[in-house]
Computed example of a mutant assay.
Amino acid sequence: MTEPIHDEAHGGALASRLNWLRAAVLGANDGIVSTAGLVVGVAGATDDRSALLTAGLAGLLAGSMSMAAGEYVSVSTQRDSEKAALALEERELREQPQAELEELTDLLAERGLSREVAREAAEQLTERDALRAHARVELGIDPDELTNPWHAAWASFFAFTVGALLPLLAIVLPPAGVRLPVTVGSVLAALAVTGWGSARLGAASPRPAVARNMLGGGLAMAVTYGAGALLGAAGV
């Protein structure tokens, strides 16, 4: 009778892993676009390697720290909400166990079980671990796998950093005459890969995602390069 709960936990863990992987792909994508826009904009104003390296490193560090801090705050809030929901559920189980048993029976019946089977399953799950059963069925939370804000922060930090390294290296390593085309080509290729990856993880068609990603990145680089060129020409 407990098999549906096992399946749900397994599915929840899989969904959680896919969400983390999707977040990593999107974090890398952000690193690519934001750093590419920054260094290409600076390249529009100057071809000095030191200036490009300084701007790129500053953008990489600022972006990765911002991503990590934002993810930490966001996931901490989510974790606090999960803990509060579990605490409330634990109190309700302690104060009104019969009402909670009826609620669990109703939830299982809504999933397609007959009333008799749902009641039997609810009783068995309650005897085994009432809080875990209600957490999974009612709240959609696995008490053993609460979100970890530090994991999220570090994952975002590294994903952004990895993505940002590509345009940074592409702009500072090649000779001055080919820096811009090498950077633009590398960035567009990387955006095609992250667009394809995010689409596949979301079970969507890759072509529109790749096109949107490349168009957005290309537009960002064109705008920042134009702004840099204008500022450089004005001697700012």
Rank of each mutant, 00 (worst) to 15 (best):
D142Y: 11
L131Q: 08
V137A: 11
L139V: 08
L146K: 02
A211F: 15
L139T: 09
G217M: 09
G195E: 02
R128V: 12
L165K: 05
L219P: 08
F160H: 10
R179I: 03
A189S: 14
N213A: 15
I141G: 10
L146E: 00
P208A: 04
M214H: 00
V223Y: 03
A199C: 00
N213F: 07
R212F: 03
A220K: 07
M214Y: 02
A222C: 00
M221T: 02
L201F: 12
L165S: 12
P167G: 10
H134V: 05
A164G: 08
M214N: 01
L219M: 12
A170T: 09
G197I: 05
T194L: 02
S205H: 11
P181S: 00
G217T: 03
L191W: 05
H151E: 14
I141S: 08
D142W: 12
D144Y: 08
T194H: 01
L131F: 13
V178D: 04
A153K: 04
S198M: 10
V193W: 07
A189N: 02
F157I: 02
A189R: 03
S186L: 13
W154F: 14
V223G: 04
T194F: 02
V178W: 01
R179G: 07
F157K: 00
S186F: 08
A190P: 04
D144I: 09
L146F: 04
A155Q: 14
P167R: 07
A190G: 05
P175T: 06
T147V: 15
A189M: 11
D144H: 12
P174Y: 01
G218V: 12
A209G: 10
I141N: 08
T194G: 02
N213I: 03
A203E: 15
M214F: 02
P206E: 01
A190C: 09
D129L: 06
A204F: 13
A159S: 14
S156W: 11
W150T: 13
A211Y: 08
T194A: 01
L169A: 14
V187H: 09
T183P: 08
R200N: 03
F157W: 14
F158I: 13
L219K: 07
A209W: 04
A152C: 07
R207G: 14
L180N: 08
P143T: 06
G216T: 14
V187Q: 08
M221E: 03
S198G: 12
F160N: 08
N213Y: 04
T183C: 15
I141F: 05
P175M: 06
V178M: 13
T183D: 11
G218F: 09
V162E: 06
A155H: 10
V193Y: 05
E145S: 12
L180G: 04
N148H: 14
P174I: 03
G197C: 15
